[in-house]
Nucleic acid binder design. Structure first.
Lengths: 203, 203
DNA sequence: GTCTATACGCCGATAGAC
DNA sequence: GTCTATCGGCGTATAGAC
C-alpha cells in the first residue's frame, strides 16, 4: 500500500501482470487447478517467489481480483444510475454493460458468472451482498414504486430478470450459443424486460 | 462389477454410503475442499483405504455420482414424455421434478446447478450433451413445430426458459429466496412459460 | 477382505545467497 | 529487492499385517 505511486506506467506493473494471468487461468481452469507455478509462468516470472512480493498468498490474488472487479462494476453502475432517470433505462444500461463485458472481457464474466466463488473465497461477502448488486436490486425496487415493473417481490423480479440475462451470457461463454453476445442482446433484453415489466412492451 | 448382487439390502451398502457422503460434502464444500479423509469420516469408515475397495480414486466417486444423477434424470424425463402429449405439459413435468428435487434432495440440485462440474470432471461430457438435456431440447423443438412455442432458436428458448427456472432454484438453494422452492413454483412456471409460449397465457 | 501404517508427490510458502 | 533452492505439510494412494 505504501509503494511508489508516481510511476504508474513506467513499470509494466508486475502486480497487474500477476492479476491478469491469474484471472485468465482461474477463468479457464478454475482456482484449484491453477498452481502458483502456472501463474508465475503465465506472468513471465522466474519463479513463484516473485509472486510473494506482491501478494501474501494465493487466496489474496483471488481476493484482489474479486474486489477490483466488483469495484469497477460498482462505479459503472453509479454512472448508469446517474445518466438515466427510469428503472428500465438503468436496467438497460446494466444489460449493455454485461453483454459488452462478455464479448470484450470474457474472463471477467467467467469469474463472475461461472466460478463458484465461495469455494475459494470463503471469507468474502457473497456477490449478492456487494454494493453493485445491492444497487441493482434498488433499481428494481424503484421501478416497482414508479409503476414500471410489476408488483412482485423485488428479489424474485431480480431472479427472473437476471436468470434470463445471465444464463444467456453463460451459454455464450461456454459456446452453447455460438455467436457473440452482442447478437443476442436486443432480443434477450426484450424477453427479460417483458418478464418483469408492468405492461408488456409487445413485439 | 462382479460383486454379489444377491444381498441388495442385507448390507447397508458401503458403496452407497460413500456416494451419499461424498454428494453431501461436494455439494456443501466443493470437490477440492473435500478430502478422502472427510468422506471416510462422513461415511463412518475407519480410514480412506476402505474407499479404495469401492472406487479407484476420488474422481471416480464424482463420476459415479454424475452418471447416477443424470441416469435417474433421464429415466424420469422418459417417463414424463410418455405421460404427457403436449410440449407444455412435458415441460411442466420437468419443472415439477426440478422443484421437487430442490426441496427433497437439495444436494443433488446443488451438484447439478451450482458446482462447476468440468473443473473436477474434465473428461466427462458436459451436461448439455447428456441424454436428459438433449431430450429437453427435443421437447422444445417439438413444441415449436406444434405451434405451442414461438419460433425462435430452440437453444435460445431453452436458455431463456431454464434461465428463469434454474436461477430461481439457485436462489432457493443459497438462501437468497428464503421459502421452499415449492412456494415459488407456480408463479415461476408461469413466468418462464410465457417467455417462450406463442400466445401469452395471460394472468 | 479389512484396516493400520506409511510412502510419495505436489504445491504453497520461505530462507538465504547475491 | 530479486531469484534459487528447498522445506514442510497435506492429501492421495498403497503395502502389507491380520
Amino acid at each position: 500500500m505504501e509503494q511508489d505511486k508516481e510511476t504508474p506506467q513506467s513499470t509494466p506493473d508486475v502486480h497487474d501482470e500477476i492479476l491478469l494471468a491469474a484471472l485468465k487461468l482461474f477463468a479457464e481452469q478454475g482456482f484449484f487447478n491453477t498452481s502458483l507455478t502456472d501463474i508465475a509462468k503465465a506472468a513471465d516470472l522466474p519463479s513463484t517467489a516473485s509472486i510473494y512480493q506482491h501478494f501474501t498468498n494465493k487466496q489474496a490474488i483471488a481476493v484482489k481480483l474479486y474486489d477490483s472487479i466488483l469495484d469497477t462494476l460498482n462505479v459503472s453502475i453509479d454512472d448508469i444510475r446517474r445518466r438515466s432517470p427510469s428503472a428500465s433505462e438503468q436496467l438497460r444500461g446494466v444489460v449493455d454493460l454485461l453483454f459488452k463485458l462478455t464479448d470484450d472481457a470474457p474472463n471477467i464474466m467467467r469469474f463472475l458468472l461461472i466460478l463458484k466463488l465461495d469455494e475459494f473465497l470463503p471469507d468474502q461477502k457473497a456477490l449478492t451482498e456487494s454494493p453493485a448488486f445491492i444497487k441493482i436490486l434498488k433499481i428494481i425496487q424503484s421501478g416497482i414504486r414508479a409503476g414500471e415493473i410489476r408488483s412482485i417481490d423485488p428479489q424474485l423480479a431480480n431472479t427472473y430478470f437476471f436468470g434470463i440475462i445471465n444464463n444467456t451470457l453463460r451459454m455464450v461463454l461456454n459456446g452453447v450459443l455460438d455467436k457473440k453476445a452482442d447478437s443476442y442482446q436486443s432480443q434477450t433484453w426484450l424477453m427479460a424486460w417483458n418478464v418483469i415489466a408492468k405492461k408488456s412492451s409487445s413485439f
